Amino acid sequence: MNILLVAGARPNFIKIAPIIDAIKTKQAQGINIDYKLIHTGQHYDKNLSDTFFTELDIPLPDTNLNVKSGTQAEQTAAIMVGFEKELQQHQCDLVMVVGDVTSTMACAIVAKKAGIKVAHVEAGIRSGDLNMPEEINRIVTDSLTDYFFTTSTHANNNLLKLGVDKRNIFFVGNVMIDTLIKNEHRLKQPNIWNNLNLKPKSYLVMTLHRPSNVDEKNNLKTLISQITTLAKKHTIVFPVHPRTQKVLKDLDLNFNNLHYINPLGYLEFNYIVKHALAVITDSGGITEETTVMNVPCITLRSSTERPETCDIGTNVLVGNKTEKIAKAFGFLFSKAWKQGQIPELWDGKAAERIINHLIAIYQLQ
Rank of each mutant, 00 (worst) to 15 (best):
M1H: 09
N2K: 15
L5K: 04
K15N: 04
I16E: 01
A17I: 06
A17S: 13
A22F: 02
I23Y: 07
I23H: 08
K24V: 05
K24Y: 06
A28Q: 11
Q29K: 15
G30P: 03
I31W: 01
Y35I: 11
K36T: 15
H39F: 08
Q42E: 13
H43M: 02
D45V: 01
L48P: 07
S49C: 10
S49D: 04
F52H: 06
P61K: 04
D62Q: 10
N64S: 13
N66L: 12
S69V: 10
G70M: 11
T71K: 14
T71P: 04
Q72V: 14
A73N: 09
E74S: 14
E74W: 06
A77N: 12
A78E: 08
I79M: 05
F83R: 02
E86R: 10
L87D: 04
L94H: 04
V98N: 00
A106E: 09
C107F: 05
A108V: 07
I109S: 04
A111K: 02
V118Q: 05
A119C: 12
A119T: 07
G128A: 13
N131L: 12
E134Y: 08
R138A: 07
R138V: 13
R138K: 14
T141M: 13
T145W: 14
T145Y: 09
T153A: 10
H154L: 10
H154R: 14
N158V: 06
N158K: 08
L159Q: 02
L162M: 15
K166G: 00
R167E: 15
N168D: 14
F171A: 06
G173N: 01
M176W: 01
I177Y: 02
I181T: 10
K182Q: 05
N183V: 08
N183R: 06
L187W: 08
L187D: 09
K188W: 04
N191E: 15
N195C: 08
N195V: 10
N195T: 13
L196E: 06
P200W: 13
L208E: 02
S212E: 09
L220M: 14
S225L: 12
Q226T: 00
Q226F: 00
Q226P: 01
T229Q: 14
L230A: 15
A231I: 03
A231F: 06
V237G: 00
F238A: 03
V240G: 00
T244W: 01
T244H: 01
Q245Y: 11
L248P: 07
D250Y: 15
L251I: 05
N256M: 07
L258C: 08
Y260Q: 10
V273E: 01
V273I: 15
K274W: 09
H275K: 15
A276K: 05
L277S: 12
V279N: 01
D282M: 07
S283Q: 05
T291P: 12
V292H: 00
M293W: 07
V295F: 10
I298P: 01
T299S: 03
L300C: 09
R301P: 02
T314Q: 13
L317Q: 03
V318P: 01
I325D: 06
A326F: 03
K327H: 13
K327Y: 07
L332Y: 09
S334W: 04
K335A: 15
A336Q: 15
A336I: 08
K338S: 11
Q339R: 14
G340N: 11
W346A: 08
D347L: 07
R353H: 12
R353M: 13
R353A: 13
H357R: 12
Q363Y: 06
Q363A: 10
Q363S: 14
L364N: 12
Q365L: 11
